[in-house]
Design a protein around this nucleic acid. Structure first.
Lengths: 222, 222, 222, 222
DNA sequence: AATGAATGAGTTTTCATTCAT
DNA sequence: TATGAATGAAAACTCATTCAT
């Protein structure tokens, strides 16, 4: 599970004294700070001042490196999308038996959200305004997930081997797998309040993870 | 399915001289306008000016009737929660056979979101800030859904009659039913962009509805 | 010669205590302050903060009453144009003999600029950007000066009575009359510096006034 | 008529390897860019960034070569003043008969403004702030126009030969000659708008030129 | 109840200028 | 000489909220 975005920008190894000017590091610091601020407060609620302060740099550099608040938001979105794709690339579902492959997909999908709660918040904002940035981004367009076709392959294989029932649409299955985890993480606070039950605890998470895996696996039985 | 919020503000009754002052109507106009504005722009992005303009009344009345922007937001939240509970009360699942009951629950859950897309947006914002308003609201606390215990009953009955398998947690099943629809509606824009496929069309919706019902029903088989 | 713009906004006569809220007065205070600031610093150099401070009101009221800086600038332009037209309307050249009429026109043209030095500065900025505001203004469009046709009439009459030579284009004569004064006032600082001679003194002005009148009158001799 | 400022920056000479560093050329490129930017936007409206971009060099070089924005503005002013003096030096009015001399002076004055429209805009800004730069410039001080004394000589000679009337002040005549052209060019946009007549066309210019020459020549008749 | 004026504290963005390489 | 990073002050404009009528 990648945690790249939490790492500090690499120091140039040969530099004796700490670099006072390091554009790459500065850009990364801004991006990291922006990710946190946007996740905490949304696009409209985020403050450029706050982002610069978190990054420990001058506010003007936001404009120097990214143009404006909106472009910075897009850069963050591209980052988190790249991150999720990177994680997907590490799955290597191909060699596995259908059942194991689907199970692994569900679990890693759940775990990714658990590890990157900001992803959800960023996406929610993006969806509210009609995916304006995502649709405009060439980079994200190029990141089309290979998972749907993979899910399709796995389903077919599973049907062939008698592991899965037929008639399951791979796109919708993928959406379901994502949604079963996404909604849980996304709505933990209101669900906890409504049910009077803390769903953010590790125990509750484990229970949810198990439930999601079970639900999907049972649903796929022939 | 209640559609109260789509109704036009009450017409002035039969008074000869058009009534310039109508507190109830004014309050409702503000609430309706606020619901739309908050749904469109989120809590931080919503503009009090815009709400007043949409309602066609003076901005000061927002403060007169609701105190401040935050309280208005809470009032909107209470409204949509009340709405969803009202809808749930109309279900009358008790008399139905378990399978039909669950199916009806899933479908009406899906349909409610389809009809009230703003509900999702409002909840997302609320969840981002830790359900601050919901937890503070006594009214919402009183609206604890009776559905969980009902789902529990239905599940037990289904197990008894051999319709359902055992071992399914009612709370998580409820969350799953909600999440399978919620995520689809919530993320339609980004999903459409990523999959290069318009998920907002009636056809796509129908397909999703069927998939969700199938998935859950299949998962509950013994 | 109108000095309207220097007057304080009228107090409401019946108000015992000074009005705390007087939209008309507030608007006028802003307009007056803006006129001075724009004249001093030009459109780009003027500061909205400074205008509000000069007017003694909150900066936001600039936006409340005028929309933005640009619209405020246009309002000032309309004001000074209206002023110059108002002054022209008071001339009553019709009844005068041609020679007196032209002389009066030259003198009052000179005097208006002497009295309203800001007019020049405002116009210069407007001309630099291609008369963007003037062309967009319906009010200024409606203020077409009646002077050109009047000059035309006077010239014709003068030719008929043998006072003036023929062949003088009225539009260009009007421009010349304006230009002979305008340039003097407009460029007083650089001309004074270049000629090493203070052209801003009352004596120098009187001399210039006489020169302009003489030049034009002599040029019109048959 | 000098057109130096329209020329492209000097081509790199015959050096085999293209010369990356050429202080003289860089300075000139900056000056040319600054002239255009100041003419377009005025001192306050001009952007150092834009000047550097137009010049195709790094912004820092503005400070390296000129100190600050203000000093760059002064350098531009000195340039245009030098240009106008250079043009005046080429007139050679001395040998001409008085009438021809004055006519030539008027025409070349008109033509210079026609060819260098930016001169006007630069001067307007300078005049608004009281000729601050011109007064501070030793170079401009040294450029005192020899024309006034020349006009004086021409006038005297003309009076002697019976060509001109007496009593015309040479300084004011010079100002008038300048003003009759200057105002026309300076205010073309607003005048065109107000008169509903395009004064920027070649035809309109020719008519204006003729009018100005006529007006002055007629005014000087005995 | 209802209106519009008025406010003060922000919020994004701009810009001349300086620093480090 | 030349570059691009970095800065701080200020710019236009926004916005929730309160005041006066």
């Amino acid at each position: 599970m990648s945690t790249v975005w939490l790492e500090m920008p690499k120091q140039r190894p040969t530099a004796a004294k700490p670099q006072r000017r390091d554009p790459v590091a500065t850009r990364q610091k801004l991006l990291t700070a922006a990710r946190r601020e946007f996740a905490k407060s949304g696009l409209a609620g985020a403050r450029v001042d706050e982002i610069a302060a978190r990054a420990g740099v001058n506010k003007q550099l936001v404009y120097h490196y990214f143009g404006d608040k909106d472009a910075l938001y897009l850069a963050v979105l591209e980052w988190v999308y790249e991150e999720i794709r990177a994680q997907e690339r590490t799955l290597n579902l191909e060699g596995l038996p259908p059942e194991q492959a689907i199970r692994k997909l569900i679990e890693s999908s759940f775990d990714h959200l658990a590890l990157h709660p900001d992803f959800i918040v960023l996406l929610n904002d993006e969806n509210r305004n009609g995916a304006r940035h995502v649709r405009a981004s060439l980079r994200i367009e190029d990141m089309h997930s290979p998972l749907v076709s993979m899910v399709s392959k796995i389903l077919k294989q599973g049907v062939r081997t008698g592991t899965f029932r037929s008639g399951v649409d791979p796109v919708h299955l993928y959406i379901s797998i994502a949604g079963l985890s996404y909604f849980f993480f996304s709505n933990t606070p209101t669900l906890s309040a409504i049910f009077g039950k803390d769903l953010s605890s590790p125990t509750a998470r484990r229970a949810r993870r198990k439930h999601v895996v079970d639900l999907v696996m049972q649903a796929l039985r022939p």
